[in-house]
Design a protein around this nucleic acid. Structure first.
Length: 278
DNA sequence: ACGAGGTCCTGCGAGC
DNA sequence: TGCTCGCAGGACCTCG
């Protein structure tokens, strides 16, 4: 039970931050928990960000991408328990024990990266480092390039459980445990089935399900169980519309059988309906 | 090349 | 009541 920021959650955060960040200049950088920085030391991180102006705010897979006027990008990967919040700066350090990094803007606003377990990470990448970073990640499921054929190619020949395959960020971007479970339920596929055993027809249904569930979750501003917050600090609403995730023992809304939880796939919690997922 | 398994990290709930 | 202990899990790493 947790609240993992996946694609819809990070998309929501990016949309909330964008109006506050675009054009703003970073006046000061506080690094409260240096172990959240990946591949860069505190001093270089602070030096690299101070004085920079933000030119764009976007998302790649489950990562928030803040583009700077020198071509570099600050990447926030919220991991399990990360939240990125924009607030008015009050000038007295951390807001709670879980703050890791603060960006103080010339507008008087504060961007807080809060992460309880600190399994997330913050990076500052040069254009070439960004190029390596983004090419290592699979296609974006909500972009036109993600066709039925692309998903069929991802699944083809694999002995991996289909759920693991669609959650593998090198193959497909942004799908995590919650939406993998939901999409497989929508498509009527048992999450533990080897991906090569998924038929072309099922693969097409799964393609449609992935696009549908991610789009609906964005409209619902994401799923909150515990730590995830939108950029405005409020919880998402999609948790009320999940069919299987966190619903073990409850009846399936499609066939009435009880939803089951298993840990057979990668020791992660998988929820599915034994009645209508085969 | 691909897959399995360990590691990071802390709050929480179960058990005594 | 208060303690210990194991679990949760995305990304990344090493090993086979």
């Amino acid at each position: 039970m947790s609240a993992v920021p996946e694609l819809p959650e990070v998309e929501t955060i990016a949309a909330d931050l964008r109006p506050h960040l675009i054009g703003a200049r970073i006046r000061r950088v506080r690094v409260i928990r240096p172990d959240i920085l990946r591949g860069i030391r505190r001093a270089a991180f602070q030096r690299g960000l101070s004085g920079r102006r933000v030119t764009a705010v976007g998302r790649r897979a489950k990562h928030l991408v803040i583009e700077l006027d020198d071509g570099r990008r600050m990447i926030i990967q919220p991991g399990m328990t990360g939240a990125v919040l924009v607030e008015r700066e009050t000038g007295n350090g951390p807001r709670d024990p879980y703050d890791t990094v603060h960006l103080l803007l010339d507008s008087g606003k504060l961007v807080r990266y809060r992460d309880v377990r600190r399994l997330g990470g913050v990076r500052l990448l040069t254009p070439s480092a960004w190029e390596r970073y983004t090419t290592a990640i699979g296609p974006e499921p909500l972009e036109p390039g993600f066709t039925q054929e692309v998903l069929a190619a991802i699944l083809r020949g694999g002995r991996l459980a289909v759920k693991k395959a669609i959650m593998d960020q090198r193959r497909l971007a942004g799908v995590g445990n919650i939406y993998a479970n939901e999409a497989l339920w929508m498509a009527g596929i048992d999450p533990s089935r080897e991906s090569r055993r998924v038929t072309l027809g099922e693969s097409s249904r799964l393609h449609a399900a992935i696009v549908k569930v991610l789009s609906a979750a964005i409209r619902g501003r994401g799923t909150t169980f515990r730590d995830y917050r939108t950029g405005k600090g409020s919880p998402g609403s999609f948790q009320g519309r999940l069919a299987v995730y966190e619903r073990a023992g409850e009846p399936c809304v499609r066939c009435g059988r009880r939803i089951v939880i298993t840990h057979a796939i990668d020791a992660r919690s998988s929820y599915f309906c034994p009645g209508c997922q085969r």
